[in-house]
Design a protein around this nucleic acid. Structure first.
Lengths: 335, 335
DNA sequence: CTGAAAGCGCTTACAG
DNA sequence: CTGAAAGCGCTTACAG
């Protein structure tokens, strides 16, 4: 059996309270007692048990992250930011991958109810305002990442602004038949990016042609895949007349689009969204989302919320940053 | 304050034991009592608290995964396999990202000591046999993934065999100046793959030229990056005479290598290792590691171990599978 | 089928 | 600086 506070108290000839104290270095303990306890604890390989501490303290030092699917560059990088900040703060991270076979809402609710963590980070899951406010009743600290609800703190990127600026970049460079590769319509980021694209065109006095907004047939992961981008680009290439440039929903789709262009022997300027690790390598121009920073910031907010349940709800919105590399240039260098 | 078993017992006019029983559907409870408890629990939003259950049961329903760095395709896919199997089994997953700034051994040891989880999955971390056996003293269920120690259960892929077969593929197709892109020498998988490469050449009576085994200058992530592959390929292209084919340590490096070839306007047959999601899309021929399956299998083993601490230690080794797409062909189609 | 009670391993006022 | 004691929220023989 594992060694407990009792074992080491007995051996050291002190009370369990004293043992507990040396491991919490809370109130003062005589050097003598401390030394003895530490020595014995080390010899016996003792370590406080997280669950018991959690119960007694009524806090688990545990944060849960809930993501739709782990193997996606965006989540991965956000998660890395989260995890790094959390270890610095001596918190553990546990995470839940939403299963696509069951109701997302139920899964999130279930996780929240279990009450294992002190707080929750919910990434890229989209609910109606009604659903979000339903979740409020669990009265547990939550911060949303890449999503918005007036009921919870959130950190996200301004997709509309990003799409607007990306589109404007093309406009300012003289393009006037700008196509957009989008994703599934019920994806919030995708909708916002379409919105930004539209506004930029309208503000420039260009008309918005619905036929220029396309997505691929493969709708896995809401369409955020190379395959989707490849298919979307094939559709674009079949357009007559062809667009003169492409703003793409996500880098991963842009990479697929680049391949489609290459296979077709065509080169159109293209700009992505995200700036995943691959992008720099491929020379992909893009709107960068500061993913790790978002993860960090979300942790910060969550901890503040945990320490002060009453503070006002805040929403942090990062402005994405336009990164011009080669693919957005007139004669781009495809991979 | 959150509602407890006491609140609902009081309201239902039963003992806390009864309440507990309905939530464990262990022994029998009268339908009447059960109904009342359930109704009240639902109304009050009650749910058993994981930590208290953990303490009382002396098991946490929690498994920890320890990985060197989360944002890497290999880990991601393995993690996904793990997570999926775990939710099916109603276990939670929490994970630790090893920080590169501190001793890996200390970090692992610390995590083990905390004793929060019922078992641990340790992925791709390399220790000496001495270090591994040191860890044995914590007497906690552990299974290793992509790593080997005689002290613990493990699941991995036969890198030597994989490299052997990949190299042999080129040999059988008439190549006789096969180059290899490797990674840092202290990476076990890389070492094994070099070994397999060597043996295949030797068995075929070809001499092994050390100058043909190259890696890039960028050693982040042990060299498993596009950049490293790009740099390595540049070195290979500078060789005189040039090799006639390339076996590459990892798909991610192979993607970098493909780009280097393209930038140089050269096409040499190349074969990777891993079969990450990108690979199919790029037409990359490769030795597939069944990453998700490995994750699944590791979970299976860990649970068996948890339920039977005394069973014999086993090592499961998957044979990687040769996937021929286009890049290994004489005139390959680079992206 | 059900309750009283002990126990899981720790923390933390409280009193000294 | 230190101990006795209550409490964290649940589970589980034990007895009925």
């Amino acid at each position: 059996m594992s060694v407990t506070i009792y074992d080491i108290a007995r051996e050291a000839g002190v009370s369990i309270a004293t043992v507990s104290r040396v491991f919490n270095n809370s109130s003062s303990v005589s050097d003598k007692a401390k030394g003895k306890v530490l020595e014995i604890a080390d010899r016996l390989g003792y370590h406080p048990q997280a669950m018991a501490q959690g119960l007694a303290r009524k806090k688990s030092k545990l944060i849960s992250a809930i993501v739709p699917v782990i193997s996606n560059y965006f989540f991965m990088e956000v998660l890395e930011g989260i995890q790094n900040r959390l270890t610095e703060l001596d918190y553990d991270l546990n995470f839940y991958n939403i299963k696509s076979t069951e109701s997302i809402y139920n899964q999130v609710e279930y996780t929240l109810k279990r009450g294992m963590a002190e707080g929750y980070l919910i990434i890229s899951v989209h609910f109606s305002e009604k659903e979000w406010s339903n979740l409020k009743k669990y009265d547990v600290p939550i911060v949303l990442i890449d999503e918005y609800s007036s009921d919870f703190d959130s950190v996200s990127v301004d997709s509309i602004e990003g799409a607007y600026n990306a589109t404007q970049y093309f406009i300012q460079n003289g393009y006037n038949k700008i196509s957009m590769i989008s994703a599934v319509p019920n994806s919030k980021p995708s909708r916002d990016r379409i919105l930004g694209y539209r506004r930029a065109l309208e503000d420039a006095g260009q008309i918005v042609e619905e036929s220029l907004i396309v997505t691929g047939n493969c709708l896995d992961r809401d369409g955020f895949t190379e395959r989707n981008g490849y298919e979307a680009m094939q559709k674009i290439l079949a357009l007559d007349p062809m667009p003169d440039s492409i703003f793409c929903n996500s880098d991963i789709q842009a990479i697929g689009a680049l391949k489609a262009m290459q296979d077709a022997g065509v080169q159109l300027p293209i700009l992505g969204f995200d700036d995943i690790e691959f992008s720099e390598f491929f020379g992909l121009s893009t709107m960068r989302q500061p993913m790790r920073e978002m993860g960090n910031m979300a942790v910060e907010k969550l901890l503040e919320r945990i320490n002060n349940r009453e503070k006002g709800i805040t929403h942090t919105v990062f402005s994405p940053e336009l990164i011009i590399r080669t693919t957005s240039e007139p004669v781009n260098v495809v991979v």
